[in-house]
Computed example of a mutant assay.
Amino acid sequence: MNIGWVKILGATFFELMWITGLKYAELPWEWAVTCLSIMGSSYCLITAGNTLPVGTAYSVFVGLSSIGTILVEFLGFGILPSFWQLVFMVTLIVGVIGLKLLNEQVER
């Protein structure tokens, strides 16, 4: 696996942390983790662009972050996704897989 993809996964992880932090942080240390997560997400995404096409990297990042946010709300906070959220999550997953497979073909 290309290091760029690992950085995209790291950027997504940090993204989910800071999005959750913006909604639920109350204590100073929680806000500190939120701020560090913003920086970590930005760093990982920016440096992923060194080894991946920027458009592909950003599209996959946004798709994974969108899906991850819905999953965090469901698994962590019991907020059930609607039917349409599930339909569009599947659409995003298909798109992310397609972009990754297309990128592998271009690299050959």
Rank of each mutant, 00 (worst) to 15 (best):
I3H: 12
G4T: 11
W5K: 07
V6R: 15
K7C: 07
G10P: 00
A11Q: 13
T12R: 05
F14Q: 05
E15I: 04
L16Y: 01
L16P: 02
L16V: 02
W18N: 01
I19Q: 01
G21F: 04
K23F: 01
Y24Q: 03
A25W: 00
A25E: 01
E26G: 10
L27R: 12
L27M: 06
P28A: 08
E30D: 05
W31R: 02
A32W: 06
T34I: 00
T34W: 00
C35G: 08
C35E: 02
C35Q: 05
L36Q: 06
L36V: 07
S37A: 13
S37H: 05
M39Q: 07
M39D: 00
G40V: 07
G40M: 04
S41W: 02
S41F: 00
Y43E: 01
C44P: 05
I46R: 13
I46M: 11
A48V: 06
G49I: 10
G49H: 08
G49A: 03
G49F: 01
N50G: 13
L52H: 01
L52P: 00
P53K: 14
V54Q: 10
G55L: 07
T56F: 07
T56E: 01
T56G: 03
A57L: 07
A57D: 00
A57M: 12
S59C: 12
S59R: 09
V62T: 15
L64E: 01
L64M: 12
L64Y: 03
S66E: 12
G68P: 11
G68H: 11
L71D: 09
L71M: 14
F74W: 09
L75C: 09
F77I: 03
F77S: 00
F77W: 13
G78V: 14
G78A: 14
I79S: 09
I79C: 01
L80G: 00
P81D: 10
S82N: 15
S82P: 10
W84E: 10
W84G: 02
L86M: 15
L86E: 04
L86K: 15
L86N: 14
L86P: 09
V87Y: 10
V87E: 08
M89N: 02
T91M: 13
L92N: 05
I93E: 11
G95T: 11
V96K: 01
G98P: 11
L99H: 13
K100G: 08
K100N: 11
L101T: 11
L101V: 11
L101G: 02
N103L: 15
E104D: 10
V106I: 15
